[in-house]
Design a protein around this nucleic acid. Structure first.
Lengths: 139, 139
DNA sequence: CTCGTACATGACCGCTTGGTTAATTAACCG
DNA sequence: CGGTTAATTAACCAAGCGGTCATGTACGAG
């Protein structure tokens, strides 16, 4: 029936959904990564992607990030200096925070497992330490 | 040109994008919230939404969560007991973590602002404390 | 075996998304 | 003024997404 209307209008435009949707694209995440190193105008942001996609495509991505509140686009003559805006990201992080125990639980299970393994070996090195949440990660 | 092909195939299917995309829907987030309180089968998960959407719709949402690795769907007779799987969520949280300074920066700016405001008033109550990251939030 | 329950699957539909090219606006520069 | 650079807008296209209904399947119970 006309349920799709209700959905489209009411459902999918809450800020959190917009934020997550904006993050659900590697191009957009890369742009955020670039912006995390400082202000940049549109062509700066586009540079790594030109050759793979056109400038209007970048403009579109940028618009998604902007309307999700993740970046702020200023203007100076013909340039649009963009800056990263942490606030929207914080909302998403806050949401995630409520689930932290779930990934730490599984980490703890691994921790317990590792302890049983190393218990049968020598007990030196003692790598205890509150080293939650692995490093790695670039993208 | 055939750029859309390259994109579709190569771009949008990385795990992180899938995870964020899965989170970009309030229905799906609500299902995760339900699962955070313990195992549930499909009709359990669907219950709050029936009347607003059909069962197949829920099945679809569930499939999105599943293929993003966020939930694991077991089977016991005709039931599919679903459980929340924290690992995928952790990957997303790790990504966010690299941007933490940006929302904490803005918090600090607010902090400074509040200090200048309260400085002109009385200096009692002293709400200093490392109370990062507001409470609120339900969804 | 038959029935009911719990889900999944398939075919369809309309909007959204991510991309394209071509044209347009806007500002600076000489 | 005319030209160049920066960026946006418009029109279009194919694929994806979120929903529908109808049908199909797998299992337990009587």
């Amino acid at each position: 029936m006309t349920a799709w209307l209700i959905n489209r209008v009411v459902q999918l435009r809450d800020p959190l959904s917009q934020t997550f949707a904006a993050l659900a694209d590697p191009t957009r995440r890369a742009m955020l990564a670039r912006l995390s190193q400082g202000e940049a105008n549109v062509t700066d942001l586009a540079r790594p992607f030109l050759g793979q996609m056109s400038l209007p495509a970048v403009t579109k991505h940028l618009k998604v990030l902007e309307s999700a509140g993740l970046v702020t686009k200023g203007r100076s003559a013909q340039w649009r200096p963009c800056t990263l805006n942490g606030a929207a990201l914080r909302d998403a992080a806050d949401w995630m925070e409520t689930y932290r125990r779930f990934w730490e639980e599984s980490f703890d299970r691994l921790d317990v497992y590792l302890k049983t393994v190393t218990a049968s070996g020598s007990s030196k090195k003692k790598p205890k330490g509150k080293s939650r949440g692995r490093k790695k990660q670039v993208e």
